[in-house]
């Protein structure tokens, strides 16, 4: 026993190294498997405060283009407003509001931290559970999909963006509805790959890709991008499609967090069926 203590004391540098390295690996593995270690991410108060201050300063430089974009969006929303439709029929008609139920609720948010040049990119937003944000809510911008929320703290949340090796988005062709998983291959922040598209699908460059109805997170028909090129996957009857993402991740500032009010119900039902299947 004494020898062991002497041995460790003699080589304390090596053992200390092993200990710290093990601690790092533990953090890393835990972060992959379960919840990401709750305090070592950018939704923690210290780093989030620094980042949001820096973001506030940076935003002044983008005010002009951002204003233009918002004004444009406002105009478009006004054109969807009921007031901008004139009634064509002269006879009376009744509107029964109870046939509509709100499924998606939108919250606007501002990106305070963003990266595009890593293999796994995250975005930090200035909304947290105080504002009703939960894990796995969709995040979109006015141009298209952005990602989904990951960790939520009191006033901030992190978003696993499309530019992350662990993000998969169920996307489809707008014209014929053939769908497949969309992943990011890590080469360019402008492009992602849509896999498993059957070879009988006719496509041309510029075809629109939107989110499919199979995703419980994203509303249907949210813009994802356009077809840039495609090739046949090796030894498989599928095309892999290179998609030019419609969201410019480098300019991301204002985004919307989308809550699907019926997600929990659907998830629970599907889980129940799966479990029933196993027995």
């Amino acid at each position: 026993m004494r020898n062991l203590v002497v041995f460790i004391a003699k080589n304390y540098f090596f053992f200390l190294f092993l200990l710290l390295e093990a601690l790092c690996i533990y953090l890393l593995v835990q972060n992959n498997k379960f919840q990401r270690a709750s305090f070592i991410n950018s939704s923690n108060q210290v780093s989030a405060t620094v980042l949001s201050t820096s973001e506030n300063i940076q935003q002044y430089f983008y005010l002009k283009s951002e204003n233009e974009r918002l004004a444009k969006e406002n105009a478009e929303l006004h054109s969807h407003d009921l007031l901008s439709f004139s009634v064509l029929t002269d006879g009376w008609f009744a509107v029964n509001d109870t046939i509509y139920r709100q499924k998606y609720v939108y919250t606007n948010a501002k990106a305070v931290n963003n990266s595009t040049n890593l293999r796994n990119n995250f975005i930090t937003l200035d909304r947290g559970y105080k504002q009703g944000i939960k894990k796995n809510m969709a995040v979109i911008s006015s141009a298209g999909v952005v990602g989904h929320t990951q960790d939520v703290s009191e006033n901030f949340c992190t978003v696993m963006s499309v530019l992350n090796s662990k993000t998969t988005i169920n996307a489809k062709f707008k014209k014929d509805g053939s769908f497949g998983p969309l992943n990011w291959d890590g080469v360019s922040y402008e492009f992602a790959t849509l896999n498993d598209i059957p070879t009988h699908v006719k496509m041309v460059k510029g075809d629109t890709i939107v989110t499919s109805q199979n995703s419980t997170m994203f509303p249907e028909n949210i813009m994802v991008g356009t077809v840039e090129s495609y090739y046949r996957e090796e030894a498989k009857p599928f095309f892999a499609v290179k998609v030019k993402l419609s969201t410019d991740f480098k300019k991301l500032t204002h985004v919307y967090i989308v809550e699907n009010k019926l997600k929990q119900e659907q998830d629970e039902l599907e889980k129940k069926s799966e479990e029933g299947n196993k027995e």
């Binding site: 790092c24 991410n41 950018s42």
Partner: peptide
Amino acid sequence: DMFYDTAGMHAAACVLMAY
């Protein structure tokens, strides 16, 4: 790591470097 959202990654590399 706090700023890059990469729990433990930079720490592991730094500790190895220091070793």
